[in-house]
Design a protein around this nucleic acid. Sequence first.
DNA 1: TTGTATGCAAATAATTTGCACCAAA
DNA 2: TTTGGTGCAAATTATTTGCATACAA
Lengths: 167, 167
Amino acid sequence: MDVAEGSLERVPVALSPEKRFEEYLQSRSLRQTGQRRFLVEQVFSTHEHFDADSLIDQLPRKGEPNYVSRPTVYRTLKEFVDAGLLRSFQLDGRTVYEHDYGYPQHDHLYCTKCRKLTEFRSEELLRLRDEVAAEHNFRVASHRLIIQGVCQACSRKRRKKRKQDLI
Amino acid sequence: MDVAEGSLERVPVALSPEKRFEEYLQSRSLRQTGQRRFLVEQVFSTHEHFDADSLIDQLPRKGEPNYVSRPTVYRTLKEFVDAGLLRSFQLDGRTVYEHDYGYPQHDHLYCTKCRKLTEFRSEELLRLRDEVAAEHNFRVASHRLIIQGVCQACSRKRRKKRKQDLI
DNA sequence: TTGTATGCAAATAATTTGCACCAAA
DNA sequence: TTTGGTGCAAATTATTTGCATACAA
């Protein structure tokens, strides 16, 4: 998948994602394994938005050191979500992950031309969300807003292309 | 899937969904078939939110009159979306459809306990959306907001259950 | 008649699961 | 030693596609 880097500042956190995940594992008496350690490191060093497939593409192949099988990648991504390290959502039919731990709450603009995700924050949206929920006596756990359309870069390309078509 | 009925008033439209679909087909020189006629009728008589599977469940079985094959159901639902009769979005990994033609724009509260979708409208959200998009020079095509949490009914059930647990 | 539409069976694609073996604690 | 973890192959699930046949215009 062709996904973009985020654009928001980090938020100060007490522990590194690695440490935080260690604590999570210990608290549930799960095990620290080479695969898990390697994946936390990979996910928090390189990626902003990604899906299982694009992550696997950047990982060592079978036979190479630090190889992690596909099922283990899927299983571990789920754990990251449970641990609060990642958030996931659906986009074009697949599951997209993004950093949650150490990043502020935000929503997305999604360009349907280049498939780039752009983040934005809005306090007003949160207020509005809680207001709507309250009116319906609904207990909010989370929300997901995706604004679809065409980004500035792609709009420009289009215009250029149209002009060329006229020549 | 266990999906709920909507709650918003209709919006006045000039044509029935059936007529509107006929026009769409004619405008693209596509054909009016028994299957298509039957499916428009079914979809606009009974359902509010539904997915392909729940629709198929309510359709005649193989061998019965008006049987429509699974691939044709999928193909026809896509046409309904193209024709502007339905809108679709992803929920829990599957494609959910809802009436678009004749219904006002809206968003959803999604109860993760009973999986019920509740609709709500917010002009303020639209304003906010366009404002955010403008700041990013982003051309909006559409948006999708889903607020996840627990509905009033399910909250009540929980409380009841907890009380019983104490006895 | 002429190109679409349909049904069938099979293919996809993303993700999950069963199970034997491996390895943290 | 004990229980959870991993890799492999196979299963699942939702959806799509190839193709021969049927049918609307």
